[in-house]
Design a protein around this nucleic acid. Structure first.
Length: 506
DNA sequence: CTAGGGTTAG
């Protein structure tokens, strides 16, 4: 960079800096390096009285690459106003800029591209297919795809991503199977598609098949497969993938690190999750949040809160999800004061306005601790309508602390808002059962039958010896059921004797 | 000077 600046000084002295070709070279060199230099390039850009299209394009491209799409589009508008016509390069850059946050503007620019005759130019067309795919407009995306004379991997993958994003996995899969050629990005897109809709086994199958086809997975594919492992409890496969990452010298970047932490935490290996976290060089809010959540889920609320403090010390700002995780850590540990303090700091220190989910955590925090009146007051005074989680937390607290009256009131509230899914009624019936009001139990069950509401059975996965087993609530068909039940009773007894005073339900 | 992918929640 110092050398670039030296050259620039020479040009300034010799009066040739305003030569557009020399300036263009300088600008593109600056713009390609880091943020600071982009603002330097921009200053230089503003001084120029004559700008080539190359210079305009470079500025638009660079701001887009630095996640400043709005700035890029502003420059594009200035370009038009100054009487310059955009070319194929310009359009590929601005469609990319529109993909993040300015989809509808993209449609306006599409008509400009048509007028100027660039629509069917391959790079522009791929950009357009990507744009429509990202906005979920699969009709136009498909039409453009069909109109393409030179479909390549990019074209196919852009459309596949569109179907994935709009939840049409089978349409995505059909395209994927018909692709003339696949690479790591297309495999990764399809794996991610399965993960998004919860088809984790299919995601892992595809990951497997990818390797059989001789395609080396990239970071995206690895991240997708690890996420699938996390949800399936597929620890052995997850470990294998981790070993693959190490063996191939793949960088433990933020996303890879977070995916590994999530996998280990969800598979019960919280210590390994911590050591992955420690090995990461660059830990962002996602990595922190993921580990905080993992610790909370392992009953290590104090460590979770400590990590939250460390995050602050290292200058990583928490976001709204982080607060959900920390608050739920407090809730499970019964740390009411700590939780209330953190809730208060959310707005006052971190400038994050609590959302309905944070109120849900607050109700849960107070409710589990037996402060039902306070919890009820939060529901009454919160600035937005309570949702099923808020009322569900209150109802659960009623169950734990045996408050039948407040449960009835809460269920009525849920019914009024039409958020009374099957689980709500089952919960109420259980509450009646534990207070031995059998006639009420019958009434609730009958009401459910009449309204034809059913509770969707809960289910979970765990992998044993490399095989993924699925368990559905109420299912007693597993070969080791008797041993399992005995062990569960043992654990339950142990918990009840050691934690009698605490409400550790749910 | 050009394009496609991936992370955190109860």
């Amino acid at each position: 960079m110092t050398q670039i600046k030296q050259i620039q000084s020479h040009l300034t002295i010799s009066g040739t800096l305003l030569d557009p070709y020399a300036a263009g070279k300088i600008i593109s060199l600056c713009a390609e390096s880091d943020d600071d230099h982009l603002s330097h390039a921009y200053k230089l850009f503003l001084q120029l009285s004559y700008r080539t299209k190359f210079i305009w394009n470079t500025m638009i491209r660079s701001f887009t690459a630095k996640n400043e799409a709005f700035k890029a589009l502003t420059i594009y508008k200035t370009m038009l106003r100054s009487g310059y016509l955009p070319n194929n390069y310009t359009f590929s850059f601005i469609f990319k800029a529109c993909c993040t946050d300015h989809l509808s503007l993209g449609f306006v620019f599409h008509s400009q591209a048509i007028k100027l005759g660039w629509e069917s130019y391959d790079f522009v067309l791929n950009g357009l297919i990507h744009l429509y795919s990202m906005s979920g407009s699969m009709g136009p995306a498909r039409t453009l795809f069909d109109s393409s004379a030179a479909r390549d991997i990019i074209t196919w993958t852009a459309l596949i991503n569109g179907y994935v994003k709009s939840g049409q996995v089978s349409a995505a899969r059909e395209l994927f199977d018909n692709m003339p050629e696949k690479n790591a990005v297309s495999w990764s897109a399809m794996i991610h598609g399965y993960v998004q809709v919860g088809l984790f086994k299919e995601a892992l199958e595809l990951f497997n098949q990818m390797q059989i086809c001789g395609c080396r997975p990239n970071h995206g594919g690895i991240v997708g497969a690890l996420t699938a492992c996390a949800f399936l409890g597929a620890l052995d496969i997850g470990r294998w993938i981790h070993a693959y990452v190490d063996r191939n010298g793949m960088e433990l970047d933020r996303m890879m690190g977070t995916a590994l932490i999530e996998m280990y935490a969800k598979c019960g290996c919280i210590e390994t999750a911590c050591s992955v976290f420690d090995k990461m060089l660059d830990r962002d809010v996602f990595a922190y949040t993921c580990l905080i959540s993992g610790l909370a889920n392992h009953g290590q609320g104090c460590r979770a809160i400590k990590l939250f403090g460390r995050m602050k010390n290292e200058g990583v700002a928490p976001n709204e999800v982080t607060f959900i995780c920390v608050l739920s850590a407090c809730s499970r540990m019964g740390l009411v004061d700590e939780g209330l303090r953190i809730f208060k700091n959310m707005r006052e220190v971190h400038g994050i306005e609590p959302g309905v989910q944070h109120y849900g955590c607050l109700v849960d925090l107070l409710g589990r601790a037996g402060m039902l009146e306070e919890a009820k007051k939060v529901v009454r005074d919160m600035p937005m309508e309570p949702d099923s989680y808020v009322l569900g937390a209150l109802l659960n607290a009623c169950r734990v602390h045996g408050n039948v009256d407040l449960s009835e009131e809460t269920v009525e509230n849920l019914v009024e808002r039409c958020i009374d899914h099957g689980g709500v009624h089952v919960l109420l019936s259980n509450i009646y059962a534990s207070s031995k009001q059998w006639h009420c139990v019958v009434k609730v069950r009958k009401g459910m039958e009449e309204k034809n509401v059913r509770k969707i059975p809960g289910c979970s996965f765990i992998e044993v010896d490399g095989k993924v087993c699925e368990f559905v609530a109420g299912d007693r068909s597993h070969v080791l059921m008797e041993d399992t039940m005995l062990l569960l009773f043992g654990i339950d007894k142990h918990l009840k004797s050691t934690r009698k005073c605490m409400a550790f339900n749910h």
